[in-house]
């Protein structure tokens, strides 16, 4: 996959994840767009590679965040009195 399509794919994935962001989709989308636009002038393939890696790390972090949020909510609701 070319770097261009990798970046587009990453953006789409992040947008998709953003729909569940606790502070709302709009909050997430505006910030996401800002970050991508900020780096639009980057041309060095190595630098782009590092940024893609960072984006994929953020994807994993978001997935973990959602999972933990759900787990903790359920734990509080159904297993409230236990430690």
């Amino acid at each position: 996959m070319s770097q261009k399509s990798q970046v587009i794919q990453l953006y789409k994935t992040l947008l998709h994840l953003g729909r569940e962001y606790p502070q709302g989709y709009d909050y997430f989308r505006t910030r996401l767009k800002r970050v991508f636009m900020k780096n639009r002038e980057t041309t060095d393939p190595k630098k782009i590679e590092t940024m893609i890696m960072h984006g994929q790390y953020v994807v994993k972090e978001l997935e973990a965040l959602y999972m933990l949020k759900k787990y903790r909510t359920l734990k509080r609701r159904y297993y409230g009195d236990q430690s």
Partner: peptide, 12 residues
């Protein structure tokens, strides 16, 4: 039950 596993996220 809740602690059986950690469900994966359905990716795009």
């Amino acid at each position: 039950d809740l602690r059986l596993n950690e469900p994966r996220y359905a990716t795009l």
